[in-house]
């Protein structure tokens, strides 16, 4: 087992994050301790439909934006 090749380097909300394993979007959201029902995810500038979070696999170099609603005018 060469674990080095398994490292997943992502950019999430502008921050570089490394994960020791392969992840789907659903697994990433869970790993980040976010409530899946209250966020939306963009992967490499494309919306990821919530119904597909469990199927969309992430790859090193992926750039994600994870957003939610906050107060605004």
């Amino acid at each position: 087992m060469d674990t080095a090749t398994e490292i997943l380097n992502l950019t999430v909300n502008g921050e570089r994050r490394a994960f020791p394993t392969r992840l789907t979007v659903a697994a990433l959201v869970t790993a980040l301790e976010l409530d899946m029902r209250k966020v939306a995810v963009e992967l490499n500038r494309e919306i990821v439909p919530r119904s597909t979070y469990g199927q969309v696999a992430l790859h090193s170099g992926d750039i994600l934006e994870i957003v939610h609603f906050i107060g605004g005018g």
Partner: peptide
């Protein structure tokens, strides 16, 4: 009500949310 869309705060994921 109007609301804004912003990045979640990854360092404080359990912070209370508007919803």
């Amino acid at each position: 009500v109007t609301v804004a869309v912003r990045r979640v705060n990854l360092s404080d994921p359990k912070a209370p949310m508007l919803q």
